[in-house]
């Protein structure tokens, strides 16, 4: 029983990471209808930035805040310079740009920081939760993720800027007629999603060690999380992440071992999607001829 509980709890913790990256994807998806395949690699790069800042002597939280700010700015910059000019290009061409970004960030991380894994610090390493069921850092991950989700919810729900971003995502033409600067809203969405990704990277790095491929597996689970939750629902992405994380752990522990757990978890997810194609919280799309 203890094994089961601890596997579920650690599944929730890794699921919170998938959920955060999935949430970052959903934020870009709702305004562009595209999946940013470079999301994970951008997060890895951000985590390296945080590592560098800590290595030069910044305290954890200062490096954390600076990294989130830098990632936000970089996200805005990428959208404005690279993607905004391609707004009218065919959809698949834009997908290729995402793959290009994937390669750029993946290769740059390796070239700058090398391919050896780094030990990444956690501010709660010294603490104990007083139980063997869940580690201190896992609990920390869950808390940070929930806090971030709450802040994002408050921002989108109660601020004028959040309202403008939602309007721009939903109906860009109508939003620009309301004086909303739609292009900038898209860029802010990219910035926010890069910042959320950076937080996810900093959270996951102490668990998996920091190396250039750190996020490749996470990306796929995050994608699955976003789809399970319903691709256009931010809270859905988070819940989807938890489901995927727990499922992954249980499959690995009880069914097939670690060799095939990725495969089996994905097959299960796809099976779920075949029966519930819009995900758990997604809005049903009405098709028009």
């Amino acid at each position: 029983m203890d094994l089961f509980v601890s596997q579920v709890l650690s599944g929730v913790a890794s699921g919170a990471i998938y959920g955060c990256v999935g949430l970052a994807m959903v934020m870009i998806f709702t305004s562009t209808e595209k999946i940013n395949f470079a999301q994970g690699e951008m997060a890895t790069f951000s985590t390296y930035v945080a590592w560098t800042l800590m290595t030069v002597g910044l305290p954890y939280w200062a490096a954390f805040a600076a990294t989130v700010a830098i990632s936000f700015a970089a996200g805005v910059l990428i959208q404005r310079t690279l993607l905004a000019p391609l707004r009218d290009a065919p959809e698949m061409s834009q997908v290729i740009v995402f793959f290009g970004l994937f390669l750029v960030f993946n290769s740059a991380s390796g070239a700058i920081w090398g391919y050896l894994p780094f030990d990444f610090p956690s501010p709660v390493k010294a603490f104990s939760t007083g139980t063997t069921l869940i580690g201190a850092h896992q609990l920390f991950i869950i808390l940070v993720a929930v806090l971030m989700l709450t802040l994002l919810f408050l921002f989108f729900r109660y601020t004028s800027l959040g309202l403008c971003m939602r309007a721009a995502a939903q109906n860009p033409v109508s939003a620009s007629l309301m004086g909303v600067r739609v292009g900038w809203m898209l860029a802010l969405g990219w910035g926010l999603s890069a910042a959320v990704g950076a937080v996810a990277g900093i959270m996951v790095a102490p668990v998996v060690f920091l190396e250039p491929q750190m996020m490749v597996g996470v990306l796929l689970y995050a994608f699955a999380a976003a789809l399970v939750g319903g691709i256009d629902s931010p809270p859905g992405a988070f819940v989807g992440g938890i489901i995927v994380g727990v499922l992954e752990n249980l499959v690995g522990t009880y069914l097939v071992g670690t060799d095939l757990k990725l495969t089996v978890a994905l097959v299960l997810i796809i099976a779920v999607l075949i029966f519930k194609p819009t995900g758990l919280f997604g809005s049903r799309r009405v098709a028009r001829v």
Binding site: R166, Q170, N171
Partner: peptide, 15 residues
């Protein structure tokens, strides 16, 4: 040009 997923209040606030 209705923002269908926003409330009526939010539609007006946006303007």
């Amino acid at each position: 040009g209705t923002f269908t997923n926003l409330t009526v209040q939010e539609n007006l606030d946006l303007a």
